[in-house]
Amino acid sequence: MTDDSGTLSIDFIAGFTIFLLAFIWVLSMIPGLLVNLQGYTIDYDAVAYRTGVILVEDPGWPASPPWESQQNFSVTRFGLAITRDTPNILSQEKVDRFFSDTSVYGAFAYPDDYHQRVIFGDYPYRFNISLLDVETNELQSVGDVVPEGYGYIRRVVKIKGLSNATVDAPLYKNPDNNVTTHEFSILVNNSGLKDQKNPAYEIDPARDQIMVNITNLRSSLDDSAINITLTKINVYKVDAGILSLVRTFNTPYIDGNSSTTQPPVEVKENVSLKFSPAFFDILNAGNSPVYINLSFNLNSPSRFLNNTWTSPFSYDYNPAHVTQPRLRDAMVEVAVW
């Protein structure tokens, strides 16, 4: 029989429908195939790796003055390492700023600010960057909740902690008991601090906060009923051998208060001075020594915290009176999807 006219009606429609269905199904699979392949298993891991390297092995940009003490819009690249030559050693100041320390300049916005400065690339990646402090078990993070299937990298790091000094007031009493005004001076010898060549252990006031806690003020008095007033804190700089008053320091923490009080102020037990890197940046001290003088007034004469008759308290590498910066273990994890 040569008549095959029957193919054109129902059979053709059935066959063509099956073909079309299969074809449409395959077409709809194509984007899924490509996303699966290029997407998370390959590209996401590479982006996570790159982000990890930038964070852990790079000090970021601008480098000097460092990005963590600049306005948000001036920061072009995040990087948490203290210097280029010390990979995996992170700066506390950079870590704090990165995880949105809003105290000075406002938070970085997720995801745009972070995407431009550390993730890079045209594709709008989502991500989660977290830092686990192994000692305190504290987890800081920025980003979204991690879904199934993401690119991942983990880096073992150390965080360079901050140094601080505690001054036990009775140890620095003057011998003369007939005085009402007392001075206590702290010396930050910038050129001496440069002696530590390893940046991992260096005390660098222009990069890391330094802190001086003066405690037990009352026990250094002859009579504990005397009122103590912190009248002013002057900052002096030695430039070309000349000691000159540069500015006053107006933000001491008095008696464990969580906010600062501008002197003159009455003090009961202790005074805490936190000098931020920005403070030393503005001083622009370079290698010249900086003296910080605290002036106290008593309402009746007594012996008190005073080192004008001997030498200033030196903020240096002597572990006996300055708690040195210590490196503690931490873990940086980057997830990208």
Partner: peptide, 14 residues
């Protein structure tokens, strides 16, 4: 062809 290319890319990145 396309799939083949994409795996090659992945291999070289890692």
């Amino acid at each position: 062809l396309v799939i083949n290319q994409s795996t090659v890319v992945g291999q070289t990145t890692a």
